[in-house]
Design a protein around this nucleic acid. Structure first.
Length: 451
RNA sequence: GUGGGUAUAGCUCAGCUGGUAGAGCGCUGCCUUGUGGUGGCAGAUGUCGCGGGUUCGAGUCCCGUUACUCACCCCA
């Protein structure tokens, strides 16, 4: 019976070649995280609604599981799919605190769900990669530098366009605003966050109307927010504004350490800046904050972000401060795939198609395949003993670079030949010794420059 | 949630002021009796998103509906 299907908006599905790219990205990220000693965990897909909604997110972006709610008798709010990995992680830490060693370092690559209108780079189901370090009661500041450096290193290794890490520090902002005498620091941060959407004059007006600032204070806020440098010279620039407060000093010192620490070393395509307008809307951040942007894809807004949160998880007796950063795998990779900036070299893992001469000799072809696989060469045996031209075409359509022929010799033995179907070159080969070039062994990520 | 656009072959799309469905690519076969790609010849494929209305007649006009899509809001 025919079934009509249609894509579900916001729930992207990749074809095999594209999926191989996504998997390569995830493998590369995991490799870097593990190189720095971060253990992988996976949390369940659902959380109690009160856990999900406790962090200032609006309820309508959460997908609720209606059936489970009904089963529970409707007395409590039920469960919903998580919309990020930070909130489930905080819950996980509380739940398993007795079995974890602190500081606890973990990374997590999982889908999250959000019920908002889909767009390029914004999906209802998307994969995110998070790294965090969580301490018990205290977490020394140097972990801020450490975890940010890990993400810098992880993203620097990816075959994607240049990335910019833009750092700020909540203590710096709050200390500055407090030193300035602003009545409503939180409202001011929220207004400053609009700076890339509204003109400066409009933001100044909002600071006066919404955050209770005087016009002079508003101007100083703008002066602070427009500081953006690729080194630690922002410290003098902030000092020059003439505001002083102990929290400001602390924030300046922290941001200086993060920028200096993340800038150190050779990078392929990741740059680091202090950008004092970065605030991040989420109110659980307390110190370091970061947003990550991808060159040529500024329209996606940030492809990653994170920061320091001193009290995301607490059981009332112990608090678990943490610092972490997340990278939007779907958000960045899917647009790159759609634009052809990234592509998979082939849709199948097979590097070799072993041709079948006739069904009676299929066993001989199977033996060749087994021999290749014993040396970790991915291969498959032809589906049917069609004319060799058809079998070659089968391989060509799948991007399989080599076809292996097993043929009877006049002297009663068999001969083996392998053909590179891109060049047409065909040579005698030993199934117990032949190996394809390394680049042909597995599907590769192809970038536009190389195409 | 608000506003715009679109819906026709596997894919990209054409189809004028209404007259029973088309192209390119792809696909299948043959030229090519066991080695593909180029070329030539032949061929297959559609409830024209769904429901209703107007009309002798609707892919085309009208109404509704659903899905997709773009922008705003917001975020990874």
């Amino acid at each position: 019976m025919a079934t009509k299907t249609s894509p579900l908006s916001g729930f992207p599905e990749l074809l095999p070649a594209a999926r191989s790219v996504e998997r390569a990205v995830i493998a590369s990220l995991s490799d870097t995280f593990e190189l720095h000693g971060f253990a992988n965990i996976e949390t369940r897909a659902v959380e109690p609604v009160d856990v999900l909604l406790g962090k200032g997110e609006t309820s309508k972006e959460v997908y609720l599981l209606e059936r489970l709610q009904k089963e529970q008798g409707g007395s409590d709010a039920g469960v919903g799919l998580h919309f990020d990995l930070t909130v489930p992680f905080a819950r996980y830490v509380l739940e398993h605190a007795g079995h974890l060693e602190f500081p606890f370092r973990r990374y997590q690559v999982q889908p999250a769900w959000r019920g908002e209108r889909p767009q390029e780079g914004r999906y209802r189901q998307f994969t995110q990669a998070d790294v965090d370090i969580v301490g018990k009661d205290v977490l020394p500041f140097h972990h801020d530098v450490e975890v940010m450096r890990v993400m810098v290193e992880a993203l620097d290794a990816l075959p994607i366009p240049a990335l910019s890490f833009q750092f700020n520090n909540r203590k710096l902002i709050q200390g500055f605003y407090a030193g300035l005498g602003l009545p409503d620091v939180v409202a001011a941060i929220r207004v400053i966050d609009k700076l890339d959407k509204l003109p400066a004059e409009k933001v100044a007006e909002l600071l006066v109307s919404d955050a209770g600032a005087t016009p002079e204070q508003a101007q100083q806020c703008l002066d602070l927010a427009t500081i953006r440098v690729a080194d630690t010279s922002f410290v003098e620039q902030v000092r020059a504004l003439g505001v002083s407060h102990p929290l400001l000093d602390e924030g300046l010192a922290e941001l200086e350490a993060v920028v200096a620490g993340c800038s150190a070393g050779e990078r392929r395509h990741v740059t680091v800046e202090a950008n004092l307008r970065i605030a991040r809307g989420l109110d659980y951040y307390t110190g370091t904050v970061v947003e990550i942007f991808m060159a040529g894809y500024e329209r996606l807004k940030s492809v990653g972000g994170g920061g320091r949160y001193d009290a995301l998880a607490s059981d009332g007796r112990t608090t678990y401060p943490g610092v972490g950063v997340s990278f939007g795998v779907s958000r960045s990779i899917i647009p790159l795939l759609a634009d052809g900036v990234l592509a998979g070299s082939r849709p199948v893992p097979s590097a070799v198609l072993v041709a079948v001469t006739d069904e009676d000799s299929r066993a001989a072809s199977d033996a060749v395949a087994a021999s290749l696989r014993a040396r970790r060469v991915p291969c498959e045996v032809a589906a049917s003993a069609q004319k060799f031209g058809k079998q070659i075409r089968y391989a060509e359509r799948r991007g399989i670079p080599f076809v292996w022929f097993v043929q009877d010799d006049p002297d009663g033995g068999v001969s083996h030949q392998v053909k590179d179907i891109r060049s047409g070159e065909q040579v005698a080969a030993d199934p117990a010794a032949w190996t394809p070039p390394t680049d042909d062994l597995r599907p590769q990520v192809v970038t536009k420059e190389h195409q």
